[in-house]
């Protein structure tokens, strides 16, 4: 948090069919549907999230991610970071307040990996869904599906992840929590945090720019992950892999695909990070175990299927 970036705030995903996408994100993941805007984009959030929305779905011809946004402490930080991003050499675009319903002015910028990122300071706070902020009950009764609690992070693929990560470290104040180092000293995978979480965003090196590997949502317990796996079978949803555990971050996880082929993750647990911690390192000769701690084998589909 040393530069004033607080947390992941929203991700806009492209889907081929909005009705099918809502069956996935609302009915299966259990996100709360918030509203539809004048462009037809649908806004959702996890029930524990205080801000109005965290997931925006846009119907389009090509699935994938439009952008991911991070919330900063206040407008002074937003202005400061906007200036620093320009000085760093980013292409910076200002998105006016209200372009996303309930969200203040956004500063959008490009990156060496070909992804679009945003920062913003203000978003309408509607509170946790279904529970009050004073003497709150443990959870709301009428959640659907996997009952995902929040949008947690995304994993992005593109060229020159060292370039994007340098920008995230130097301009935005993210730390490297975990890394993979190969025999030549190159780092094909970098996991970044801006708080205590094991990852707020992660990058894997790949020649094609701007690709999404997955958007991830947090569950409380391993039992919840197994229940998510049951729902994936009951609904005949496209499974990728799991339930299993990662070596990297040690999260307990399952991966599956939305009806447009964007990969989703729900997970629980995982390591924590403080700013004085050295990055956790996995060596490339143990990459199988780093990715899937139980199988300990590389999985071609997991590593190469992207939108």
């Amino acid at each position: 948090m040393k530069k004033g970036v607080m947390r992941p705030g929203h991700i806009q995903l492209r889907v081929l069919d909005m009705k099918e996408a809502l069956e996935h994100y609302r009915d299966l993941l259990g996100l709360i549907e918030v509203e539809t805007d004048s462009q037809g984009r649908v806004y959702l959030k996890g029930w524990t999230e205080v801000d109005k929305f965290s997931v925006v779905l846009r119907e389009a011809d090509e699935p994938g991610m439009d952008f991911v946004g991070y919330k900063v402490l206040n407008n002074q930080v937003l202005e400061q970071l906007e200036q620093e991003l320009k000085e760093y050499g980013c292409q910076v675009e200002e998105i006016p307040a209200g372009e996303l319903n309930g969200c203040g002015r956004r500063v959008r910028f490009d990156s060496p990996t070909g992804h679009m990122f945003e920062i913003y300071a203000e978003k309408e706070q509607t509170g946790k869904w279904g529970v009050k902020n004073v003497n709150p009950e443990a959870w709301p009764r009428d959640l659907k599906g996997m009952k995902a609690t929040r949008f947690d992070h995304c994993l992005l693929y593109g060229p020159n992840i060292e370039g994007t990560v340098k920008m995230f470290q130097e301009v935005l104040g993210f730390d490297i929590a975990e890394q993979v180092i190969d025999d030549e000293g190159k780092r094909p995978a970098l996991f970044l945090t801006v708080g205590m979480k094991a990852h707020d965003v992660a990058f894997i090196e790949c020649p094609e720019p701007g690709k999404l590997h997955h958007a991830s949502f947090f569950l409380d317990t391993w039992e919840d992950v197994l229940r998510a796996a049951d729902l994936i079978s009951m609904e005949d949803v496209s499974l990728d892999i799991g339930p299993t555990r990662h070596g990297l971050t040690h999260g307990k996880t399952i991966y599956f695909f939305d009806p447009s082929g964007n990969r989703s993750e729900v997970f629980c647990g995982g390591d924590y990070h403080y700013p004085d911690h050295e990055p956790v390192t996995w060596t490339a000769d143990e990459l199988g175990k780093a990715i899937f701690y139980h199988d300990r084998a590389l999985n071609d589909r997991f590593l190469t299927v992207l939108t």
Partner: peptide, 25 residues
């Protein structure tokens, strides 16, 4: 691949036969 029309891994060419299609990337 993804089984959802997004990733392209299952790209084929139809040489003969009738089919219905859903939207794909």
């Amino acid at each position: 691949g993804c089984r959802g029309g997004g990733c392209g891994v299952c790209k084929i060419r139809v040489l003969q036969g009738e089919y219905e299609r859903k939207r794909m990337s």
